[in-house]
Design a binder for these strands. Sequence first.
DNA 1: ATATTAGATTAGATATATTCTAATTATTCG
DNA 2: CGAATAATTAGAATATATCTAATCTAATAT
Lengths: 141, 141
Amino acid sequence: MKAETIQRSLEDSGLRCTAQRYAVMAFLMEHKGHPTAAEIFEGVNRLDPRSSRATTYNNLRDLVKAGLVSEVAVEGRAGRFDAKGTRHHHFICDRCGSVEDMDWYNVPKPASRSLGKRVVRECQLIFRGLCTKCAARRASR
Amino acid sequence: MKAETIQRSLEDSGLRCTAQRYAVMAFLMEHKGHPTAAEIFEGVNRLDPRSSRATTYNNLRDLVKAGLVSEVAVEGRAGRFDAKGTRHHHFICDRCGSVEDMDWYNVPKPASRSLGKRVVRECQLIFRGLCTKCAARRASR
DNA sequence: ATATTAGATTAGATATATTCTAATTATTCG
DNA sequence: CGAATAATTAGAATATATCTAATCTAATAT
């Protein structure tokens, strides 16, 4: 039944439901820990069909463009991906670069005067600091 | 007089005011367009002392850690840097990856319940969409 | 059903971005 | 001064992401 859900959301976005694309989507829905492209590539290939690195990147790009997946860029590290489920913000750890979900809450839009002729598609709130693990590690020194 | 300002802010952060480090800081204050590390490297070397790529990256890292400079990660592209002047948010163009400043306004903090044991150092608001140039370009098609 | 076309995928090469290494130089401090 | 620490260097190495050109697949038209 999740299978049909994925298939439908792909097709609704005008994307064919290929084995490789489906696998990326399914992997993201089962691994909520914001995996990198390399982890996704490894993960989907560990299971079944041989998928190439290029295809994994292509599909991630397509899924992001279609709005089914979001990407979180992390300074100096691989980007991380996330199946868009319920709305949420993100937390990025300064030390280990891990990305975690944060409860969503509404953020006021910028004044239209400050927008100029820009077209704003979305607005992301990103918290930075130390994750639980890294905070504990620092405290114990 | 800007020279002393830079020197003081470096020393206040426990960083020696070396020629290379100063140059990075000065370059960032004169170029508000959010340059990449490569552009900064090129820029400071075009002027005067030979500085190496590694040093440029090292200094950028130190300056970010000291809170004098901020870095904006952009998906699939080089990170961009910004001397922290007055507070502001950022806008990232989906198409060309350019980063622009947006007027600052206060953003409500998350509920402490949702923070857990995380330590939040800062909170960034990032707008995404099409910059003025790219929006115009798209409209004309 | 075949042919045509557009959409996807592939392996590997390439490009881009960043960090590491080990040696060297500069600065601070006792 | 001399020792210890901080900073810099060139270039190699790594990590990350995209490109290429050939091939395969699926949808549509004939």
